[in-house]
Design a protein around this nucleic acid. Structure first.
Length: 426
RNA sequence: GGAGAGGUGGCCGAGUGGUCGAAGGCGCUCCCCUGCUAAGGGAGUAAGGGGUUUAUAGCCUCUUCGAGGGUUCGAAUCCCUCCCUCUCCGCCA
């Protein structure tokens, strides 16, 4: 949610900034709407003030033992007028709220210009790509050869875009997750285990609702809940309606969760393998920060995700998302893309965003400013550190060997019970 | 699922339909006193929206006592529905 004050005082500036991300905001229409709102609100509040005053004097008269019937008669018509004025006001406010809830975050001035992902800016490429002087297999072929990846089973059990992992490959997936959590906890992150089912208020807070409900799996029985599309939702909502003591900032959380996404609109994209699933797992980093610190936190979070990829010995690049590719709630987003030999390209494995006060305003997440003593909005940041399913894909492909086996990255060997090479069973 | 108790400010906790945004306490801030510390005395201290304004200062105003409805001139207080917490029972990984 954008600052209503900024929106009111300078909607044209908002429109200009949102245009950088390809969003059309009709500043004139908003201005007109706000003018109507102001008129109606003033009227309604005047009536309310009058009624409050009269009711108060009735109370005093009654306490003094006076006859209050004439006073009551004088208020007779007020109630209906007030009712009508309130109804009108609420209608306009609802209209205005709907507009505001649909507005994406203002981009950082430094965000690159551009219309789609082709315009993203590559900041750096890190690590050596593997030298595979044999016929490169993709992770599906590797996984099937190792009897560790079974898309048909997933399809039978549930449907398209679900997969069963088994044996050493399943363990590798688990090893990746544990390795990543440990790495973040080692530098001061607090590990959280959170609900995978959330209510609509939480999804509103992080910005998935009301606009992006189609991307979510919704539960209607026995309660109206949703499966989380990312740990960002439950973890960030920890501070919803809270006033955090400033000395606790920044809050740094790491949580491993499954993520459930309907993938509406992704028909035909990445249909093979584990790149795009309805259910995948992720190790998520969340920072809840003082506004002055959030940019530094953002950089530090990117460094965390990079450390994971570097630790795994994977080649990756860091990309600064342009206006056409950045998400609804983000002011600035860096993506980490990992090298996939089978696709001969980099694919997203982590996305790290600073939403500044956009989510905090929606969810009433604040800290108490020591100088003024007043609550101020926090900044919230989220980023994958990193996506486990895609990390598994990356390890299988980058560590494949000519004989069809897969070498276990050194840092994962302890998590694999000492296993150094994954070979086909039996 | 059954029976009962309860949800009030940063926290705890009072509150008979009217002068209650709400006693008291804790915490916090400022001041005083005490030659350090501890203790003591005084004052202040909820949040959000709107208007005015250069202003996140002041002033005016509205809203908020779990959520949503209702009764009433007037609701923290009365009525209805829902949510949550706690205790006991039942069920259960």
């Amino acid at each position: 949610m954008l600052d209503p004050r900024v929106l009111r005082n300078d909607p044209e500036a908002v429109a200009r900034q949102l245009a950088r991300r390809g969003f059309v905001f009709d500043a004139d229409a908003y201005r007109d709407l706000d003018t109507r709102r102001k008129t109606l609100q003033t009227r309604a509040e005047e009536l309310q003030a009058e009624r409050n005053q009269r009711s108060k004097s009735i109370g005093k008269a009654k306490a003094a033992g006076e006859d209050i019937e004439p006073l009551k008669a004088a208020v007779a018509g007020l109630g209906e007028q007030l009712e009508a004025a309130k109804a009108e006001l609420e209608a306009v406010q609802a209209e205005q709220d709907a507009v505001r809830e649909g507005l994406p975050n203002l981009p950082d001035p430094a965000m690159p210009e551009g219309h789609d992902e082709a315009d993203n800016v590559v900041l750096r490429e890190v690590g050596d790509r593997p030298h595979l002087d044999f016929e490169i297999k993709d992770h599906v072929a590797i996984g099937e050869h190792l009897a560790g990846l079974d898309g048909a089973a997933g399809a039978k059990i549930t449907g398209a875009r679900f997969t069963v992992l088994s044996g050493a490959v399943a363990r590798l997936h688990r090893a990746l997750i544990t390795y990543m959590i440990d790495a973040h906890v080692d530098v001061g992150y607090t590990e959280l285990n959170v609900p995978y089912i959330v209510n609509a208020d939480s999804l509103y807070g992080t910005g998935q609702l009301p606009k992006f409900g189609d991307d979510l799996f919704r539960l209607t029985e026995p309660a109206d809940y949703y499966l989380i599309p990312t740990a960002e939702v439950p973890v960030t909502n920890m501070v919803r309606d809270e006033i955090v003591a400033p000395e606790r900032l920044p809050l740094r959380y790491v949580a491993h969760t499954p993520c459930f996404r309907a993938e509406a609109g992704a028909a035909g994209r990445d249909v093979r393998g584990m790149i795009r699933q309805h259910q995948f797992e992720k190790v998520e980093l969340i920072n809840i920060a003082h506004p002055d610190e959030s940019d530094a936190c953002h950089e530090a979070m990117v460094a965390r995700a990079e450390a994971v990829l570097a630790g795994l010995g994977l080649a990756y690049r860091v990309v600064d998302l342009c206006g056409g590719d950045i998400g609804f709630a983000a002011a600035r987003t860096y993506d980490l893309e990992v090298w996939l030999p089978s696709q001969n390209t980099y694919r997203e494995i982590s996305s790290i965003s600073n939403t500044r006060d956009f989510q905090a305003r929606r969810m009433g997440a604040r800290y108490r400013d020591p100088e003024s003593g007043k609550p101020r909005l926090l900044h919230t940041l989220n980023g994958s550190g990193v996506a486990a399913g895609r990390a598994l894909v990356a390890v299988l492909e980058n560590y494949q060997q000519a004989d069809g086996t897969v070498r276990v990255p050194d840092v994962l060997v302890p998590y694999m019970g000492g296993l150094e090479v994954i070979a086909a069973p039996g």
